[in-house]
């Protein structure tokens, strides 16, 4: 028998620190498979966020830098502008990207920087212990919204993919869910497409992934997977929101 499914070469053998059932591992694998597929591992530099995924450099076999909280798109901009031959990807959580780093993501997207941003949205601050995120759903209890997110005091959850898709500068914007095998395979396809856009100099690519945080949701892995379908997807619809066929670059 031959292996038909193995860990991508882009990832090493370390045991990941993520909690049981956390979606980061699957997203890491999909990114790793994309780096393998396009044979770009040895010319890729990743930008790690502040949050649970800050330790991603312990798992990827490519060069990685750690950016200040929310600044990965700016760091990625500085990198891609100075070495356009390298493949640059930023990996960010919802607090990092949609809260403290909102200006950085919007402007990197608007400039059409030829980088790939992987956005992991689990509707909560994971590493700091489950506080309210800009993507926390209305009514969702977190350690800083103990009575549930309140529309009157906290506002609505932000839909990043839709927001970025409105910018002329973005080339590829999609949202997928890391829950069922079918949805994970769709996410894989989009992540591949996002890296392909960069390889082909097509401009800014962005994939948002709805993932679980069983620990901070106070749920089992199974319940968390169900929550994605029952609560997250109705508010954060899945799909490819934008896909340019031709690059804006002259």
């Amino acid at each position: 028998m031959k292996p038909v499914f193995s860990k991508p070469k882009a990832l090493n053998d370390a045991v990941m620190h993520y909690c049981p059932g956390c979606g980061h591992g699957v997203v890491h694998r999909l990114v790793g498979e994309a780096l393998d597929h396009f044979d770009i591992l040895d010319r890729t530099v990743g930008v790690a966020p502040v949050g649970c995924a800050v330790l991603m450099y312990d798992y990827f076999n490519c060069d990685i830098i750690e950016a200040p909280h929310g600044r990965p798109p700016a760091v990625a901009t500085g990198m891609k502008r100075s070495r356009p031959d390298l493949i640059i990807f930023a990996y960010q959580g919802d607090g990092d990207l949609a809260s403290i780093g909102l200006a950085e993501i919007v402007h990197a997207a608007n400039r059409g920087e030829n980088v790939t941003v992987i956005f992991v949205n689990n509707t909560v601050y994971g590493m700091t212990g489950g506080q309210m995120a800009p993507t926390t759903l209305l009514g969702q209890q977190t350690t800083t919204s103990p009575y549930g997110r309140n529309l009157n005091t906290d506002g609505y959850p932000i839909r990043m993919a839709e927001m970025l898709a409105t910018l002329e500068g973005t080339s590829y914007v999609a949202r997928h869910a890391i829950d069922t095998p079918a949805n994970i395979l769709r996410a894989r396809k989009s992540i591949f497409r996002a890296f392909e856009m960069q390889v082909k100099d097509m401009g800014f690519s962005f994939v948002e992934l709805l993932t679980t945080c069983p620990t901070n949701w106070g749920m089992s892995s199974r319940e968390s997977i169900r929550r994605i379908k029952e609560e997250l997807i109705p508010y954060f619809p899945l799909g490819v929101f934008k896909e340019k066929e031709v690059a804006d670059y002259i």
Binding site: S6, L11, V15, P20, G23, V26, L185
Partner: peptide, 19 residues
């Protein structure tokens, strides 16, 4: 059957599938 669904959903990437 080696359908790989278990490996696809595994967050710890600890399942290898052979056929």
């Amino acid at each position: 059957t080696g359908c790989t669904l278990c490996a696809v959903v595994c967050p710890d990437i600890c399942i290898e599938v052979f056929k």
